[in-house]
Design a protein around this nucleic acid. Sequence first.
DNA 1: TTCCTAACATGAGTAATCCTCACATTTGCA
DNA 2: TGCAAATGTGAGGATTACTCATGTTAGGAA
Lengths: 212, 212
Amino acid sequence: MEGSVAAKPDQEIAVARRAPTQQRSRERVERMLAAASALIAEQGSDAMRMGEVAERAGVSIGSLYQFFPDKRAIVWALAERYTAESQACIASALKDVSDAEGLKRAFSELVDIYYGMFLAEPVMRDIWSGTQADKALRELELADSRANARFLVAVLKRLRPRADPVALETSAFLVWQMGEAVMRLAISVDREEGDRLVAAYKCMALRQLVEG
Amino acid sequence: MEGSVAAKPDQEIAVARRAPTQQRSRERVERMLAAASALIAEQGSDAMRMGEVAERAGVSIGSLYQFFPDKRAIVWALAERYTAESQACIASALKDVSDAEGLKRAFSELVDIYYGMFLAEPVMRDIWSGTQADKALRELELADSRANARFLVAVLKRLRPRADPVALETSAFLVWQMGEAVMRLAISVDREEGDRLVAAYKCMALRQLVEG
DNA sequence: TTCCTAACATGAGTAATCCTCACATTTGCA
DNA sequence: TGCAAATGTGAGGATTACTCATGTTAGGAA
């Protein structure tokens, strides 16, 4: 019936073919992204068709490719917005943590927020589900994870100043990546089990962070 | 240049279109799987072309579709072999564990074996990297994970008979899924960091298993 | 105002790929 | 030996990402 998709062997990380400089084109690019976002929410990014994106955005297929080198670039652009948005949130949540109790509260709250976003945002859900298959997305997620881990490391260094810095970095990065994995897992099982898994993760992660 | 593949919205879990009953066709199916495996090792499953599989197996494209309903089914068939193989290994490793020290040894050894397989087997690596994007593969992995978690639960019930069974199941499943995620992560960073991450995971997971 | 260049817009057409199907061949059994 | 079911074939249908030759618009310089 339908074809399966094949990603090219040579995946390159091309984000935009040409940056829109005029007001008109900037608005059109926004419309393209909005259309893509809506389609992903409805059907998932695999089922999103470039022609459909163009049609819904009210532009031609050629215009789409004027600003996005390929299909993945559109998804990437959406993903980048999510990471930028969440990064600020994370930084501020961890900013003033100075003791173990504060870390527990802040971390727990962050996990809840993330979990809530995964449950509520079908686009985010879809994008980060397919992460593993797309090299550019995987790298974006890794970079994001490392950035977030750095905030955690800063806190840990305050809490455990005598610990090996490399060990702290490893812990923080591991905990963050496990968090992303737990989110993906939790939304793919029923809600009750998902909640239990997230709770167990919190406990496990905090112990690793606090005790090393 | 080349088309991207699109997975259908309605992913169904069809494994085989028709089981080969004659000796001849069974051999041909083996050749198809071997060809697919080789191509995945060389280029990854996304870049694997059905025509190339058929050619390398020395069969026509039509024969391929006689036994596999679609491209994903071939990957699925390979994945199933890996899970079946590893499941036996896991069961025997955990069979006779009766104290915390034994669990530590057995778990640590299992993780090392898994890690080694991920590092050494490009096909396994590729298949489980793309897991998230394919519904059938995701379900296979989930089922596999649950099966493996059950072995862990059996051990945990012996070690901590008074603990809440549901909590034990959650812990075991979580630990197993985190393990798969760590493997995927570890092979995508440089070897040294990968080793550190795996070690940290072991420590974190064991604490969760032993202490709850 | 007028002109001119670069940015922008268009969509029919190209290329690549999965998968089907009508038809041919082979197997195993009555 | 004959026949039905299983198996084998590959040209072609159907989709879809992406290109490119050509036309249009914006915005500054003369």
